[in-house]
Every structure is written in structure tokens, then in C-alpha cells.
Amino acid sequence: MSASFTKSTARNIFYGGAVFFFLLFLALTFDTTQALPKRDNRVNLTEQVARGKNIWETRNCIGCHTLLGEGAYFAPELGNVYQRRGPEFIKAWIKGQPTGAPGRRQMPQFHLTDGELDDLVAFLKYSSEINTNNWPPNIEG
């Protein structure tokens, strides 16, 4: 009862389907880039934020924390830490590491200057103002 089932048709469908859906994905990507200016808080992308992002990256913060839910799940979400803790707490916390509490998870001491701490906080503030469709569900991240 099996009808014809040829490799060449299967192959054509694979190539056709792949191209079709990739083009569709590019079209949606294009629409996304058009829609982002209203959502991604780019008006607040200052030089200071750029420096802060560089500090974020070169200290590999993503190796323990999540940012907008992406990263490692060892330490708290930082996309909304600016609202949760406020700038002064964040800076004091980073300066005070590691806590050295026995058996507790430890964060390294990064020896950041006051200027660098301000940059990092500016980056976290910018991140916290991105329109994330109301994620995370609550302040605890």
C-alpha cells in the first residue's frame, strides 16, 4: 500500500523547507530590529553603560548569575537587582566580597575602583529598564 516515497522528493522538501523557514526567520528578525528601539532602552545607552557592560563581561559575571534569565543558575538574577537592592547596596556588596561564611557560596573580590563600580551599576540600571514583557514574575528574580 505504500505510495511512492522517493529520496529526491524528501531532499527537495528538506532544502525547500530549510530555505523557506530561514527566510521567514530573517523576516521576523527584521521586524524585531524595527520594533526594538521602543523596547530596548537604547536612549539610555551611555558611554558609562558601555563601560559597565565591559566590566560585566570581563569579570564573567554570567558564569554565576543570570541576566534577564540567561546565564548560570548559581547566584541571583541581576536583571532587576537595581530595583531589588538599589545602587549603594550593590556597590557595598561587591566591595565586601567574599563573605568567607563557611560552607556558603562565595563571590570573588574583583578589586573594582569606585568609578568602575559606578559604571557597573549604570549598566545594571540600564538593563533593568528594558521592556521584558513583565519578566521576572516578582522582585526576587
Binding site: M1, S2, A3, S4, F5, T6, T9, A10, I13, G17
Partner: peptide
């Protein structure tokens, strides 16, 4: 039998 190629029917 289905008409045409079975691969298309999967698609």
C-alpha cells in the same frame, strides 16, 4: 495509495 510522494505528505 495516497497520490504523489509520501515525503510531501509528511511535509
Amino acid at each position: 495509495e495516497v497520490p504523489g510522494d509520501l515525503a510531501m505528505w509528511f511535509f
